[in-house]
Simulated scan of single mutants.
Amino acid sequence: MSLALIEEGAKKSGILWVSLAGRDRLAWHVWHQGAIYLVTGGGEQSLPGLTGASRVRVTLRSKDNGAELVSFDADVEPVDQSAPSETETGAVAALVKERLNASGTAGLAGRWAASGASIVRLRPDVAV
């Protein structure tokens, strides 16, 4: 499996499945500079145990027919919303842009931080 295959699958579909406590959970995400970013908690999608995990199993499925494209392990890395890097700032902007049905995207990232939502990077564990 290659990072290119994971990137292609992640870019084609805005959702994925992440295995938490033996259960696959559906989550929306964005792909940004070699990693998957997602938001959990604070009124956003509930992914219990994700922020405390060090690794998770991720499955990407075909947008066309739902068949599994690729499954892989990923390292879980929380994003420090108070001091994000340039890459993380770009990822948060991409998350805001892709957030469907948000009541006003202006200030959404700030509302996530204020509400206790966590932004998490899932870095695929593959040989590059």
Rank of each mutant, 00 (worst) to 15 (best):
V58F: 08
V58E: 06
T59P: 05
T59H: 12
T59D: 15
T59R: 15
T59S: 14
T59F: 07
T59W: 14
L60G: 08
L60E: 09
L60T: 01
L60H: 02
R61L: 13
S62T: 06
S62K: 00
S62I: 11
S62C: 01
S62A: 10
S62Y: 05
K63W: 12
K63Y: 15
K63C: 11
K63R: 12
K63F: 13
K63I: 13
D64V: 09
D64W: 14
D64G: 02
D64Q: 15
D64P: 03
N65P: 12
N65T: 04
N65C: 08
N65G: 08
G66R: 02
G66M: 01
G66W: 07
G66S: 11
A67E: 15
A67Q: 15
A67V: 15
E68Y: 09
E68K: 11
E68R: 13
L69C: 05
L69M: 12
L69H: 00
L69A: 01
L69G: 00
L69N: 05
V70G: 11
V70M: 07
V70R: 03
V70Q: 08
V70N: 05
V70L: 07
S71G: 05
S71N: 01
F72C: 08
F72E: 04
D73Y: 03
D73M: 11
A74K: 04
A74Y: 06
A74S: 10
A74F: 05
A74D: 03
D75W: 10
D75L: 01
D75T: 07
D75K: 03
V76M: 05
V76H: 01
E77P: 04
E77Y: 11
E77V: 13
P78V: 04
P78H: 04
P78E: 00
P78D: 02
P78N: 09
V79Q: 01
V79S: 07
V79P: 08
V79L: 11
D80C: 06
D80Y: 06
D80S: 02
D80A: 06
Q81N: 04
Q81Y: 00
Q81P: 09
Q81E: 05
Q81F: 04
S82L: 03
S82G: 07
S82Y: 13
S82F: 09
S82N: 14
S82T: 12
A83M: 08
A83D: 13
A83F: 10
A83S: 09
A83H: 07
A83W: 08
P84D: 07
P84V: 00
S85A: 02
S85Q: 03
S85Y: 06
S85D: 11
S85P: 03
E86I: 05
E86W: 12
E86K: 07
E86T: 10
E86F: 12
T87Y: 12
E88G: 00
E88S: 03
E88A: 10
E88Q: 08
T89Q: 11
G90A: 01
G90V: 03
G90I: 11
A91S: 13
A91T: 09
A91Y: 09
A91H: 06
A91L: 01
A91R: 02
V92R: 12
V92W: 08
V92H: 02
A93S: 12
A93D: 15
A93E: 15
A94C: 03
A94K: 12
A94W: 04
A94N: 10
A94D: 13
L95M: 06
L95G: 04
L95Q: 11
L95F: 06
V96R: 05
V96H: 10
V96I: 08
K97W: 12
E98N: 15
E98K: 11
E98M: 10
R99S: 15
R99N: 15
R99E: 15
